[in-house]
Every structure is written in C-alpha cells, then in structure tokens.
Amino acid sequence: MTIAGASERPVRRAGGLSLTSIVLVVVLGVFFLNLAALILGVVLNSFATSWFGSLVPDGLTTRWYAYAADTFQLLDVLRVTFTVGAAVVVLSLLIGAPAAYALARRQFPGKRLVMLLFLLPMLLAPITYGIPLATALYQFDLAGSLAGVILANLVPSVPFVILLLTPFIEQIDENLERAARMCGASTPRVFAKILIPLMAPGLLAAGLLVLIRVLAMFELTFLTAGPGEQTLVVALYYTVFAAGIRPTQAIDAMAVIYMLTAFVPLLVALRFVNPTQIVARIKQENVR
C-alpha cells in the first residue's frame, strides 16, 4: 500500500519523460544558461582588472565602482532615478487607482471608449508617441526638465496601474462598502477604513511594478531628458556610446548597479504577487 505517490498530472500517462518534455527542458535550459552567462559576463567584467580574450579575467578588483561613481556622476544619476521613480509611482497610483475604482464599479455609456483611451498607450511602442510628446513638451519648455521626464513616464504608467487594479477592485465585494455605509461611515471613511486596507496588496504590487517599468523605460526618458535628468538606463546608454575613451569595466560596473536597482523592487514585488497572475490580469483586461 505504500507505493510512492507520484505527483499528479491529469490525463497524461504515468511513467517516463516524453520526448517533447525533454525538448522543452533543453530549450528552456539553453535559454537560461545563455542568459546567466550573459549576465555573469557583465558582472565578472565589472570586477576585472583586465579581461581580453581569455576565459576568465586576469585579476579581480572593486575599483571600477569607485571610478564609475566618480566619472559618471553616479550619485546624481541615482538621485534623479529614484526621484523620477518615486514621483511616477506616487502620481500614477493617485491618478490610476480612482479611475480603476470607477471602472470596476460602474457600467456606463461610453465605457468602451474610456477603456480604449486607457489601453492605447499600451498597444503602441513608447517611441511612437514619445517623439510627438517630446516635441510638445519642448513647446511648453518642459522637455529637459525633471517635470517633463516624470510627465512622460506617467503616460504608460497610469494605464498600467488602471489595468492592474481594475480586476483587483472588482473582486473586492461591493457589499463591504455598503455594509460600512449602513454602519454610518462617510465616503472618506469608507475609503480610509475599508477600501485602502483591502486594496493595499494590489496598490503595493502595482507600485513596485510601475517602479520596475520606470527604471527600465529607456525611450521616453531618453527623448525627454536633458543632461541633468538622466536616469540610470539613459546614463548607461550614453556611457556605452562614449566607450573607447572609458574602460569597459566601468561601464559594466554601471550596468551591475542598474541591475541591482531593478532587481530589488522586483524581488519585493514577487513576495506579494504570483508572476503569472500579474500578466494574467493584464491579459484578461486586454481581451475585452
């Protein structure tokens, strides 16, 4: 009776790996192996005294990080990056969450049109609207300023927040709000005591994901930032271009720092949400 309980795969026959499974494992394995090697190469190079054509660097050092901090005004860049990141997260939550609430709770004429307005920025590559947007911002003297960079980054972030939060709010039972009102709570109190606490996980996840997107958003920042408002990605792009005169190790040190800034919020976000759920929600909304 104590036959080892194999894990259950509905329908499929028990025993043995099928050929397709092996092929898939190989495909995924090769992909991740190459990716890991790619990242490891960058990390290793950032610590290399020198590395040219051999399997591993000649020696290890940490001085490129100090060098990068000096030459690339890393502290300034980090400050700008996180100012932009924080501002975009806060603003897109403040603007997106109420809209998501209205969309989740009301059916009204013209809703499809509003949804389309909120979806379009996600169905177009940023550079497409980035160029007219940058041009328009120049007109208002906003390009090349911190405000301009933040405004530009709000364009994809607000729809993203709405898309993430609408289904999240839909699954919060509306009767909870009604019950609170029956108990005499005013609208602000309903928000403060019922909705915000219930939405907290969703807000947190959405905020972190927006942060990750802003950190990685090259095109919009690149098109709207002046020399003083470069975020880390954009600074990285420029240093790669100024290569030749810069040691590659310093560029890679910068890349490693960028990678860390993006990974930390991601790892935090993953504690709160299951990755397939994130995209499943986006997809569900898109389908309609």
Binding site: P98, A99, A102, L117, P121, Y129, P132, L133, L137, Q139
Partner: peptide
C-alpha cells in the same frame, strides 16, 4: 463616482492624445 475617471482621462488627454494630434 465617474468623476474619479477625470484625472486619468485628463492626463492621457494632455500627454497622449494632444501630443498625438499635435504631431499629426
């Protein structure tokens, strides 16, 4: 409740629709 849509709609109107039409 629909007023809650206004900030988002206004923002996208100003920063997405307007620049787009301006570009056009």
């Amino acid at each position: 409740v629909l007023w809650l849509l206004l900030p988002a709609a206004a923002l996208l109107g100003m920063l997405f629709v307007y620049p787009f039409l301006y570009g056009l």
